[in-house]
Design a protein around this nucleic acid. Structure first.
Lengths: 216, 216
DNA sequence: GACTCTACTGGCACTAAGTGCCAGACATCA
DNA sequence: TGATGTCTGGCACTTAGTGCCAGTAGAGTC
C-alpha cells in the first residue's frame, strides 16, 4: 500500500535509514546473545531485520561471518605496511604489524567483547577465530622469510618469531577481554612486544648470518 | 536373497570383512582425490562404501572428520604424559610432548600425506587443521601455566613457549610433507626442539623466579 | 515525461549437511 | 526359545547456502 501493489514492494527499501548490512549484524548479535548462536537461524535474523532471507547472503557469505570483523582489510593493511617497510629492522616491522592487528580489535571494543562472549561458548566460532589468527601469523612469517636467507634454519626462525608475536598479541588481548575491557591494554602490549623482540632478535640475527657462502 | 526377504537385509552385514568405518574412510579419500572434496557428497561416499547414508554419521560426526585422525586420543595421551611429568623440567616435558604429537602424524604417513594434499586445496579443511593444532598448543600452554607462578609474565611465557614449540613442530612437518615424505624428519625435529628449548629456557626461568614474595 | 542503465532486493526452487526416530538384523546369553 | 544390546537401514525433517529471475529505486540522458 505504501508505493505500489507489488507484494515485495513495501520492503524493497528498508524503512529505517540504517544500512541493511548493519541492521543484519545488529539483529544477529542481539539474537545470538538472547537465544544462543546455534538456536538462532538465518530466518530469525532476517525476520528481525525486516529483510528477505536471500538478502542476508548478499551481505555475509555465511552465518559465521556476521560476527567477525573484516579481517581481509586488516590483512591487506598489514601486508601493505610490511611491504613498505623494507628498510626497517625485520623484527621491529613485525612488532609494528602486531600493533596494527591489535588496534584493529581495539577500533570496535564493544564488538570485540561481544564476539569474545560468543567464541567462548561456540566451538565453531572459536575455530573460526583461530583460523583468522593463523592468517595473520602467516602474513608475518611470509614477511620474515622474505627478509631472511632461504635456509631451513631461517624458515624455522621466521615461523617461530611470527608465532611468538601472535601468541603475545593473543595473550594481551585475552587478558583485556577477561577484564571486560576495563583496563588499558597498551602498556601490557608494549611490554609483551619488547619481551618477544628481545627474545627473537638473536634467533633472527643468527639465521641471517647463515646466508654467508660458507653455510650449508 | 542372501539371507531374508527384507529389503535392507542384504547389506545389514557388510559383504567384505573390512570394518565399515575404514571402508568409509577409504572410499572418502579415494573420491576426494578423484573429484575433489567439495564435489564429493556423503551420498557418493556411502554409495561407494555400500552403506546407508545414515550410517556415515554414526562413524563420523561430519564430512570433515573422515579426513582427520583421532586428535582427541592423541590429546588425551599428551595430557596424560604431561600430567605424569611433574618432576621433569617443564620445558623438557613440553619438548617431549611435541615429539608425541609429531609421532602421531608419523604413525600413518600415507594418510598424513593424503590429508596434506587435501588441506592445501580446501580452505575449510585447512581451517580445521589449524583448529586442531590450536588445541595442542592449548594443552601445552595449560601445562606450562600449571608449572609456573600465577603471574601475567608467566602466562605470557607459557603461551609464547607453547606457540614456539608448535610452530617448530609444524615447520618440520611441513618440510617433510613438501618433500613428499621421502626424508627422515627426525634429525630436523630434534634440531628444532633443541633450538626452541634453548631459546625459551631463560624466559621460563625468569618468569619462574617472579614467584618470589617481593614480586608484583 | 519517457527512456536506459545500474545496483539492489524479494522470492522461489534446489542441493547438501546433519539430526531424530523407529524398525529390522544379528550375536550373545540365559 | 526368548530377552537384551548393538548395529544398520530408511524416512522425514531442519538448516545453511546457491542459482536464477523478476521487480524496484535512483541517477542520468534525451
Amino acid at each position: 500500500m505504501v508505493s505500489t501493489m507489488y507484494p515485495n514492494s513495501p520492503l524493497a527499501v528498508p524503512p529505517a535509514g540504517e544500512p541493511i548490512r548493519e541492521r543484519l549484524a545488529r539483529a544477529a548479535f542481539e539474537l545470538f546473545a538472547l537465544h544462543g548462536y546455534e538456536s538462532t537461524t538465518i530466518d530469525d535474523i532476517t525476520t528481525a531485520a525486516g529483510v528477505a532471507r536471500r538478502t542476508f547472503f548478499r551481505h555475509f557469505p555465511s552465518k559465521e561471518d556476521v560476527i567477525f570483523p573484516d579481517h581481509d582489510s586488516v590483512l591487506d593493511r598489514v601486508r601493505w605496511y610490511l611491504g613498505a617497510s623494507t628498510k626497517t629492522e625485520p623484527i621491529f616491522a613485525v612488532a609494528e604489524a602486531t600493533r596494527l592487528i591489535f588496534e584493529s580489535f581495539m577500533a570496535a571494543p564493544e564488538q570485540t567483547l561481544a564476539r569474545y562472549r560468543l567464541t567462548r561458548e561456540v566451538a565453531a566460532l572459536r575455530d573460526r577465530e583461530v583460523a583468522s589468527v593463523a592468517r595473520y601469523e602467516r602474513v608475518l612469517s611470509d614477511y620474515l622469510r622474505s627478509r631472511l636467507p632461504n635456509t631451513h634454519e631461517a624458515a624455522l626462525a621466521a615461523h617461530v618469531a611470527a608465532a611468538s608475536f601472535v601468541a603475545a598479541h593473543n595473550q594481551v588481548l585475552r587478558e583485556w577481554l577477561r577484564s571486560g575491557g576495563t583496563e588499558d591494554p597498551h602498556p601490557a602490549l608494549e611490554a609483551a612486544l619488547t619481551t618477544i623482540a628481545d627474545l627473537m632478535a638473536p634467533l633472527i640475527a643468527h639465521s641471517s648470518r647463515q646466508s654467508s657462502p660458507s653455510a650449508v
